[in-house]
């Protein structure tokens, strides 16, 4: 919660319009890159390294992610900005915790979805993109997937806005749909930048589709459609459980939660700012 301060100037309308422009440009860069990659994919990858596709995928998706971050970050209230680092670490730590539970999913977006539910689609998109950029300091291979992570945050926030987190059985459905979209968008990155997926399980699935004669992009897309929706359904469920486990007093501090009535139940009588 940040009350407008008495001593500091509030940013003017023009700054707001510029940021909106950055957001739109960022989204356009991501969408344009994806369309280009899908239209030009044939022949390219098997003929050579697919160098131009790799450059376009890296450049377009990263540019879009950075524009989104620069456009969205200054508009967020401080209470959301300080939550972003927490969400990024949760992405990593909770991912590892689930890893020790022996379940075959990666679950590396719990923090992103949590922020999206509490603070909205823009905050979710910025968190997803930032997550990939900061994580790439430890594991550079996640860097090109920044656009996909931003999309997951955006879709989670949109789902929350339209009340899909008000009923517990709708959250996994929203996650499933998000997983389909995110998988389809991320597949060209895996295909053109890395030429495959990391990890034995996903690699085996891709190999199976390749053995049936699919192109690399088709095989990786099908693999993503098998693993991602399930994974995101679980992530959305966990995020919903976490949000409802938080005390009302905390969740209703977020303006997004109050304005769009994101969560089931009533606002606490006395707000503690």
């Amino acid at each position: 919660m940040s009350q407008p301060s008495l001593t500091l100037p509030t940013p003017g309308q023009r700054a707001g319009r510029n940021r909106r422009l950055l957001e739109i440009l960022g989204a356009a860069a991501i969408a344009g890159t994806f369309i280009y990659l899908v239209l030009t994919q044939p022949a390219d990858i098997t003929g050579g390294l697919g160098s131009v596709s790799a450059l376009v995928a890296l450049g377009g998706f990263l540019l879009g992610a950075v524009l989104l971050i620069v456009g969205v970050l200054p508009t967020l209230p401080t209470s959301t900005v300080v939550l972003i680092p927490v969400a990024l670490v949760l992405n990593i730590v909770l991912g590892q915790l689930m890893g020790t539970s022996g379940l075959p999913f990666y679950l590396d977006a719990i923090g992103t979805v949590l922020i999206a539910v509490l603070a909205g689609p823009a905050a979710g998109a910025a968190t997803g993109a930032l997550s990939s950029i900061v994580w790439s300091f430890i594991n550079p291979t996640v860097l090109p997937f920044a656009a996909g992570a931003a999309l997951i945050g955006f879709l989670a926030g949109t789902a929350a806005r339209y009340g899909l987190f008000r009923r517990f059985y709708l959250a996994p459905v929203a996650g499933f749909v998000t997983g389909i979209v995110a998988g389809v968008v991320s597949a060209p990155i895996a295909a053109f930048v890395f030429g495959g997926t990391s990890g034995a399980g996903t690699g085996a699935i891709v190999s199976a589709f390749r053995a049936m004669g699919d192109t690399l992009l088709a095989a990786i897309t099908k693999q993503a459609l098998i693993s991602d929706p399930m994974d995101k359904a679980i992530v959305f469920t966990i995020a919903a459980l976490l949000v409802y486990a938080l005390p009302r007093r905390t969740t209703f501090q977020f303006p997004f939660v109050r304005r769009y009535n994101v969560l089931a139940g009533k606002e606490p009588a006395k707000r503690n700012a």
Binding site: M1, S5, L8, P77, T78, S79, V82, V86, L114, T250
Partner: peptide, 21 residues
């Protein structure tokens, strides 16, 4: 998560008081 979100709220107020935005 509960502890972290709570801490973040306190940090936000401290940062706001120092003109973070």
């Amino acid at each position: 998560v509960l502890g972290l979100v709570h801490d973040a709220g306190i940090r936000a107020q401290a940062l706001d008081a120092r003109g973070f935005r």
